[in-house]
Nucleic acid binder design. Structure first.
Lengths: 336, 336
DNA sequence: GGACGCGATGTAACTAGTTTCATCGACTGT
DNA sequence: ACAGTCGATGAAACTAGTTACATCGCGTCC
């Protein structure tokens, strides 16, 4: 059975004995239609199970009520949190969210951005500062609002809504330095094509704090944290604290330290960045830097919807990170 | 500055001195246009930075190249995995994915389904069997393909692509029973409005295995697992194994057991369901039942795209779960 | 050399809505 | 009683494409 043709405005107009203009008014500005004809039209709409074609609306109003988001991956809870809230808050404003994942590959990002724009998104939400050559041209061609998230910068080409990644990393390192740690191992995800990780590392390197840092790069996931701890130097070089630039890495580190019988925080302080949901519940609770992912989603929803609906280009917003001190870190001198 | 009006087909036609039909042909069936005019038109397209209006295309072709997905939450990694793969594979087939989260609330689901259909999705992907009253009417009204995921059933109203949740739970319980466990605590998420959790519990209750089960419901998250273990009975009633109906609950349980100094698996066997990425890396590695979330995403992409493009209504597909034995469970008799 | 076929192109109808402008009738004010 | 105003409605233009059908050369075949 082929689906029978859906009723359109003309059908409704014919059935209710009015013009298409009147039907359109019933749908858009019902107060301008007399009570009697309105109810007649509404009956016809119900009888014919009529639904407006979104495409036809879009062609006239120029609005698709759709926003596109380009994110590196859904596999990382921090993006999932952001996206979940973004979707909710956009939905509350009558906008739907088209999601595309890029795997952190700028070429893929460019391709998917074009696909989203072709589909007709009214605005685009993109992670990070660095994008493929040609990205700006593409945006200019479509003349569509773009906001950058997970980063904050005053002089970016597009408004940014996010945190200052250098500062985030320094907040974390400052805590460890305050506790007296001087040899600190930093575990981070891939730096290639990830400006946020690079900014965090830059923040650490330029912190000016009296610490000696060693860096280990692993894949961004629990297994990356495990591996980095396996490779940790022993003996005199051994760090007294581990700073993971992402909580998932810290989870892996915690597992591996457990496996090795290294007590946290007695024998090793451990710290993450993100404050994922489990960080509060882990044993020991994970000291971390809370990134306001949900708030970022909420603010981004507000900003982009105002931009597409009223044309208000938003300002960049800096969301502040927060040090969350739990049981996984302790002072180096309190050993005795 | 107002964005200047975007060029349309007529503009391109005028500039290149051909009719709109010819321009349309250059875009859709370039081989039917002579080389010379084609390049002339292509130049005009480039000069005017012309891009087809997706809405206008959709109105004519009846295709929006968009699929909607309704999922309970993005906060749970199993859905994120599914969705990530689904998006990738749809994208490879030229389809974009509109994501809506429902928070497991059928009323919200219904509302969001309607929003997606209004926007013009060509197909809908929905989790689970149970939906709000009115859902079927809505689908019928739009006459749009729907596939149900995370569940498998031969006699559902729509094709299902997923696993048999009763069987999944029985696979897990069977493993514990085989190891000799007789008193088993089951930790699960909310059963209200979650047919999958209910199906798993039903599978356990009707397993016919010689076990004594106790059930604890908590919120679906790490903290839910923690709390359930805190509440675990002591003394003679104490179970010898814990079965969590989701890995996130197992993670919470593991943390709390760690905190209590209960050795896993020596003093307590622990098992999950899902096989999330970290389950391999945890200390000890988590015995679990692998749910093929990614494969589900891939299969769903294939099924729905064939349905919307060629009209092939897919059959339901049962994806099989797999027992993954790791270090968190051990035989009850091997204590001595 | 005229009919035939074919590729290339144009004209105009068509998709499903929104919106402008004109019209009509009823009510108000003088 | 007659102009002025207002609310309700309709006709038709308009959005930006696709596509069926018509037309126009041009080379080929008989």
């Amino acid at each position: 059975m082929h689906r029978r043709k859906r009723a359109n405005l003309r059908d409704v107009a014919e059935r209710s004995g009015v013009s298409v203009a009147t039907v359109s008014r019933v749908l858009n500005t019902p107060m301008r239609v007399s009570e009697t004809t309105r109810s007649r039209v509404e009956d016809a709409i119900r009888d014919l199970r009529f639904t407006r074609s979104a495409a036809a609306r879009a062609i006239n109003t120029g609005r698709s009520n759709t926003i596109g988001a380009l994110i590196p991956t859904l596999d990382h809870a921090i993006f999932a949190k952001f996206l979940g809230r973004l979707e909710q808050d956009l939905s509350a404003r009558g906008l739907s969210l088209l999601v595309s994942t890029t795997g952190s590959d700028p070429a893929v990002e460019l391709r998917k951005a074009e696909a989203l724009l072709d589909i007709g998104v009214e605005g685009l939400i993109v992670s990070g500062m660095d994008h493929a050559q040609g990205f700006d041209d593409l945006i200019a061609r479509f003349g569509v609002p773009v906001v950058l998230t997970s980063v904050y910068s005053q002089n970016a080409r597009y408004p940014t809504i996010g945190y200052d990644n250098r500062s985030v990393a320094q907040t974390a390192l400052g805590h460890l330095a305050d506790l007296g740690h001087r040899r600190i191992a930093v575990i981070h995800g891939p730096t290639a094509q990830n400006d946020r990780t690079r900014a965090r590392i830059a923040g650490l390197v330029t912190s000016g704090l009296p610490v000696e840092l060693s860096f280990a790069e692993g894949r961004l996931g629990v297994s990356g944290g495990v591996q980095a701890v396996v490779d940790l130097p022993r003996g005199a070089n051994r760090p007294t604290a581990i700073l993971c630039l992402s909580d998932v890495l810290a989870l892996g580190a915690l597992f591996e330290l457990n496996r090795q019988g290294v007590a946290v925080p007695e024998d090793m302080s451990l710290m993450g960045i993100d404050d994922l949901a489990w960080a509060r519940s882990s044993a020991p609770g994970l000291t971390t830097v809370r990134l306001p992912a949900e708030e970022m989603g909420a603010r981004t929803a507000v900003a982009i919807s105002a931009w597409v609906a009223e044309g208000d280009r938003p300002r960049s917003e800096r969301l502040t990170e927060e040090l969350i001190t739990r049981a996984s870190t302790r002072s180096i001198v309190s050993t005795g």
